[in-house]
Simulated scan of single mutants.
Amino acid sequence: MSLAEKFIVLPFKKNRGNIVPGEMRQASSAASAEKIAAAMSARHLGVAAYSIQVDEESGDMTSPKLIIAFGETADLTVN
């Protein structure tokens, strides 16, 4: 198992009364993820940037760590 650290930004929206993640964007670094999240925050209910560990063989994502969040977000559950 070969793990690599990746950075993602998730916008959040309301769907049937629940806060759900929108389309994930990848960033090249933690600083880039913060900038993207800040720029997106004015257009979304909430935005969060995370660092995650990705198994490069299977594509499985684990160990999400919150970098920064704006507005209303939901817990990120990744198995």
Rank of each mutant, 00 (worst) to 15 (best):
F70Y: 15
M1C: 12
I68Q: 06
A74S: 13
K13M: 14
A33Q: 03
V9H: 02
I8Y: 04
N79E: 11
G59P: 04
M40K: 07
K65P: 04
T73P: 04
T73V: 15
V54P: 01
V9Y: 00
A30R: 13
K35A: 15
S41F: 00
V20L: 06
L3A: 08
A27H: 09
D60I: 12
R16W: 14
K65F: 01
N79G: 10
S29H: 06
R25F: 11
Y50V: 01
K14F: 13
N15Y: 15
T62M: 14
S28C: 02
T73M: 01
M24I: 12
D75H: 12
L66H: 05
A33Y: 03
A30Y: 10
E72H: 04
N18R: 15
K14S: 10
L3T: 06
S32N: 15
S41H: 00
H44I: 08
P21K: 00
A74I: 05
S2T: 13
G17C: 03
V20I: 15
D75A: 11
L66R: 09
H44R: 01
N18V: 11
R43P: 02
Q53N: 12
S32F: 12
E5L: 12
P11N: 07
V47M: 02
R16D: 15
M24H: 00
E56S: 13
S28T: 09
I36K: 08
A48S: 07
E57K: 10
A49C: 04
M61A: 14
K14N: 10
Q26E: 14
P11W: 04
S28N: 14
E72I: 02
A49P: 02
T62N: 10
D55W: 12
N18P: 00
T73H: 01
G59A: 11
D55P: 05
G59I: 07
K6T: 08
D75E: 14
L45P: 00
A48L: 03
T77F: 02
S29P: 08
P21M: 04
M61D: 07
M61T: 10
E72W: 00
F12L: 01
H44S: 10
V54L: 09
S51H: 05
G17S: 09
A42M: 10
S58Q: 08
A48I: 05
I19G: 02
S2W: 03
K6N: 11
V9C: 11
E72G: 00
G71Y: 07
E5F: 09
M24R: 11
